[in-house]
Amino acid sequence: MLKSFCIKREWCKGCGICVAFCPTEVLALDAQGKATAVRLEACIACEQCALRCPDLAITMQIAERED
């Protein structure tokens, strides 16, 4: 269960990796070419975007882990 989701816009270089591999199409690149969450309600908290992000721009907290 997703608790929080954050993209540091200033760190994101818009490579599109998170967009390409999100299984539920939560993410898209905005007009400035930065990653943004357009359907956050569909997020299944698989964490693949945060783990794979080469810019370390995505942070998410998942409810099961209280850290």
Binding site: E10, C12, K13, C15, L51, C53, P54, L56
Partner: peptide, 21 residues
């Protein structure tokens, strides 16, 4: 020092991400 100096999509950032994790 962020955003880092690597190009968009460079895998080295993903290695950094995995290494610190």
């Amino acid at each position: 020092f962020f955003p880092h100096m690597w190009c968009a999509g460079c895998g080295h950032g993903t290695v950094l991400n995995a290494l610190v994790r």
